[in-house]
Design a protein around this nucleic acid. Structure first.
Lengths: 231, 231
DNA sequence: CTATGATGCTTTGGATCCAATGATTGCTGG
DNA sequence: CCAGCAATCATTGGATCCAAAGCATCATAG
């Protein structure tokens, strides 16, 4: 799952990746892929041993992930992946409905023709794809690419953060709902892509907010997503 | 400037404050009060010596502040307070226009009668006050109190983050514009407060987004705010 | 048999020391 | 006199060691 490693700072020509950022990247992938589930605790020493580093960069990595909404921590009690409730996920999707159209509008003027072309290619791969994990990765890549021209760091990082913290529930939802309504996603993506190609910010914002809103409402009809995995 | 110290985690019954959180609190106050200006670099050792700690908790504190949008950092190049441009601040205000009404709507049902009463008291102190620094602190306290019932951590912390990163420019703007349009703020606050007392989320959201929007537009007419302090 | 308190064990937080990287400054050659 | 290069210095990143706080278990008394 490349492309979203190295987020917070170091965005520029940063030549090296410090150990703390490397550990953060591995941990991020582990959380986003579902290997570490919500509610699960993260022990510093275990992570340090796994990635061949000392505990210190692990601590810094956990702070970075905390900034991205991927972990929570409390003094002397450790860190864990936050477990979200039904209402919490619903509100986070409402935040996406309000923020991502703005990110798209800010990004649109800066997207190159090549960028738009790549977005179209991703959509073709989405339509040809059948694997669930790959669909999630491609969908994420599709949307984040549409925001990639946004020059406002605060906005970009908040959008990524919202995607991160709901990734697990999106996966659980897609798993439950099956591929039956995949065509709706494709239609929405196609309309969004067309608006982007026409550089029509108004249409793009409308299609995007509708896309997120529909997902939120369908997701809210699967309450079983939020009850699972109670050890 | 109390009330906003100890943000990120530890929100619950956290009994102690670790040294890193204490350092983060002091640094946060220093940045929000303007003592450390945008663009200024922060040297770890200097901070460590100043607050009587080792460099390690300072490093963790800088990560926490990075999470709150108060600092930026790059590997082997250190940390500094980010300097924002005119357009960047404008977009951040647009983010506020979209997010804070949602935070208010989520908060409203959970605000107690006592909360609402305290908000009214703060507004009275705002109207009686003449000092600029105190106005900024009270205004911040007013708005954050209206969001204090919001149970969605992600939303609350994002709102605080947006307030944090624009605090310096808000102060510069208030300093330039003078008290001449203070009455507009008071009128908007009064209408907002009334809607809150009536538990009218629709009205409250409208007044709030209008309040932020007007501030954004007046702020955008003072480009000199963003050019100052070039050493 | 249960509840309460003390003790040890695990895990995190902090301090000091060492290594690596970036910037600055001085030197040398054109 | 200026440009480029190299060496030194300041600053950050990382590893190891030590202290403190939570948590669980076990023993003991009611």
């Amino acid at each position: 799952m490349p492309g979203q490693t190295r987020r917070t700072a170091d965005g520029g020509p940063g030549p090296v990746d410090a150990a703390s950022r490397r550990v953060a990247g591995h941990l991020r992938d582990a959380i986003l892929s579902g290997e570490i589930a919500p509610g699960e605790r993260i022990r510093q020493e275990e992570v340090a041993e796994r990635f061949g580093a000392s505990r210190l960069p692990v601590r810094e990595a956990l702070r970075m992930l905390e900034a991205e909404g991927l972990t929570e921590s409390q003094a002397h009690k450790g860190a864990w992946v936050p477990r979200l409730g039904r209402h919490e996920v619903d509100v986070i999707y409402q935040m996406r409905e309000r923020l991502e159209p703005l990110a798209l509008a800010e990004s649109l003027p800066h997207l190159t023709e090549d960028d738009v072309h790549r977005i179209g290619e991703i959509q073709e791969r989405i339509e040809a794809n059948t694997d669930l994990a790959e669909f999630l990765a491609l969908d994420r890549e599709f949307h984040l690419l549409t925001y990639s021209g946004c020059p406002i760091d605060q906005l970009s990082s908040m959008v990524v953060r919202l995607w991160n913290s709901t990734q697990h529930y999106r996966r659980a939802f897609m798993y439950l709902s099956g591929p039956g309504r995949r065509w709706v996603v494709n239609a929405e993506h196609r309309l969004l892509l067309d608006a982007i190609e026409r550089r029509d910010a108004v249409d793009a914002e409308r299609h995007l907010s509708g896309h997120i809103r529909r997902t939120r409402i369908e997701l809210s009809r699967h309450p079983e997503v939020f009850e699972g995995t109670t050890p």
